[in-house]
Amino acid sequence: MREVRLGRWIRLGLLVALVALVAAACSDVEGGSSGGGATGPTADTQVPDNRDVTITIAVSPWDGSAANANVAKVLLEDELGYTVELVEIDEFAQFPALANGDLDATLEVWPSGHGKDYKKYIESGNGVVDGGELGVVGQIGWWVPTYLVEENPDLATWEGLKGNEDLFRTAESGDAGQILDGDPSYVTFDQAIADNLGLNFKVVYAGSEAAELAALDAAYQKQEPILFYFWTPHWAHAQYDLTMIELPEVTPECEDAAVNDPDAYACGYPEDVLYKAFHEGLQEKAPAAFAFLSAMRYTNEDQNSIALEIHNGTDPVEAARAWVEANQDVWQPWVDAGLAAS
């Protein structure tokens, strides 16, 4: 009985091995694979040959990040001759991977969400270096669909929300109005802000951006009220007309509270000046790439124009290439910095 069974396994193994051998003996089928994925250096004699050096860049799960990474990819490959690999990866895993060199760079870090990481990895010198500002500025805040403000212009400010909390009541928030928070990786002070401003709101944590957006979409389709924690830049602004509610300006007291006593926070959110972060060994491994990425800097408009194309279904590399072709004046300095360093 046992011999029979063994024989079966052996035959199966043989079959697999044989087929594997046939396949292994061959190389990739020409023209069959994913097309011109790796463009490689062009025939241009100006381009240095760094083909053997692979730069891995993180792509966070949002289109703006895909825009940054693909612009960097196109330029690093076409102008500086590197091989670039993009890794789609959640934010929580990026700093550990940057520290040990599995990632070379991440191009869009939101400071508000990564205060601890900055301290642990960058300030303490644990494998990650600050790569400078990306140029894109983020803004977190409270948002409502614009149709609400058109109906009742008072709702555009926090003072106007007072007394109108009932508009935003849901089954989950009970007697209070609901503020909907999304992905827990961002820092929020929403409950403290509401309490300290004397607003009767309860924060409901959606727990994921997807759930928050699903709720926004449902409310938008039915033109119902919804108040939620959100930010710009984000692709959703292309699809939904949203208005940010005016909260009190950030004061020194609030900056202090943010660090020491979050419950006392009573302002709007400060701007998020997005920055880049690199593996500490990048400079040695690829000086030109390091110089290029350090110099890389563009505006919200630049990033938005690419992100929107990606959101509408354009292949991210193509969207980035289209921007590169139209904006040489923006990126030439980055490439020059790279060429100077090599």
Binding site: T170, A171, E172, L180, V204, A206, A210, A211, E212, A214, A215, D217, A218
Partner: peptide
């Protein structure tokens, strides 16, 4: 979420 809202 679209059908039952955000919550429990």
């Amino acid at each position: 979420v679209a059908l039952f809202g955000v919550g429990r």
